[in-house]
Simulated scan of single mutants.
Amino acid sequence: MKARFLLSGVALLAVMALTVVAAEIDLTDVKCVMNPKAPAKAEKSVDYKGGEVFFCCDNCPKAFAKKIEGKDKLVMAKANQQLVATEQAKQAKCPFTGGPLKTELTVNGAKIQFCCNNCKGKAEKLEGDEQLTKLFGEEAWEKAEFEVADAKK
Rank of each mutant, 00 (worst) to 15 (best):
residue 123 A to W: 08
residue 1 M to E: 14
residue 137 G to I: 05
residue 71 K to I: 01
residue 19 T to L: 03
residue 113 Q to I: 01
residue 4 R to W: 08
residue 110 A to L: 00
residue 39 P to S: 09
residue 93 K to I: 03
residue 49 K to R: 15
residue 43 E to Y: 09
residue 133 T to S: 04
residue 124 E to D: 06
residue 57 C to Y: 01
residue 114 F to Q: 00
residue 3 A to S: 11
residue 47 D to L: 12
residue 64 F to M: 01
residue 86 T to C: 13
residue 145 E to P: 02
residue 16 M to W: 05
residue 107 V to G: 00
residue 5 F to S: 05
residue 94 C to S: 04
residue 22 A to S: 15
residue 32 C to V: 10
residue 151 A to W: 00
residue 44 K to L: 15
residue 59 N to H: 13
residue 43 E to M: 13
residue 27 L to G: 13
residue 114 F to A: 06
residue 126 L to C: 07
residue 2 K to E: 09
residue 69 E to S: 14
residue 19 T to Q: 13
residue 36 P to H: 04
residue 52 E to Y: 14
residue 9 G to C: 02
residue 55 F to M: 03
residue 126 L to E: 11
residue 60 C to P: 10
residue 6 L to F: 08
residue 115 C to K: 05
residue 10 V to N: 10
residue 24 E to P: 12
residue 110 A to D: 04
residue 139 E to F: 00
residue 133 T to H: 03
residue 116 C to L: 12
residue 33 V to P: 03
residue 107 V to E: 02
residue 119 C to H: 07
residue 103 T to L: 08
residue 149 A to W: 03
residue 55 F to Q: 01
residue 33 V to K: 06
residue 131 Q to R: 14
residue 114 F to Y: 08
residue 77 A to Y: 00
residue 54 F to G: 06
residue 23 A to L: 12
residue 78 K to A: 01
residue 68 I to E: 10
residue 9 G to V: 04
residue 2 K to Q: 01
residue 36 P to A: 07
residue 121 G to S: 12
residue 74 L to T: 03
residue 106 T to G: 01
residue 68 I to H: 10
residue 139 E to D: 15
residue 44 K to I: 10
residue 78 K to S: 02
residue 48 Y to Q: 09
residue 49 K to E: 10
residue 114 F to T: 01
residue 81 Q to E: 00
residue 45 S to D: 08
residue 137 G to E: 07
residue 112 I to T: 13
residue 94 C to V: 02
residue 129 D to I: 07
residue 135 L to C: 01
residue 73 K to S: 15
residue 72 D to T: 05
residue 143 K to N: 07
residue 98 G to C: 09
residue 33 V to M: 04
residue 119 C to N: 07
residue 134 K to D: 02
residue 108 N to K: 03
residue 84 V to Y: 01
residue 95 P to E: 15
residue 106 T to Q: 11
residue 25 I to A: 13
residue 47 D to V: 13
residue 35 N to Q: 10
residue 57 C to D: 15
residue 126 L to A: 00
residue 87 E to K: 15
residue 38 A to K: 08
residue 36 P to D: 08
residue 39 P to K: 14
residue 124 E to F: 05
residue 112 I to N: 02
residue 78 K to E: 03
residue 87 E to A: 14
residue 61 P to S: 09
residue 66 K to M: 14
residue 52 E to D: 13
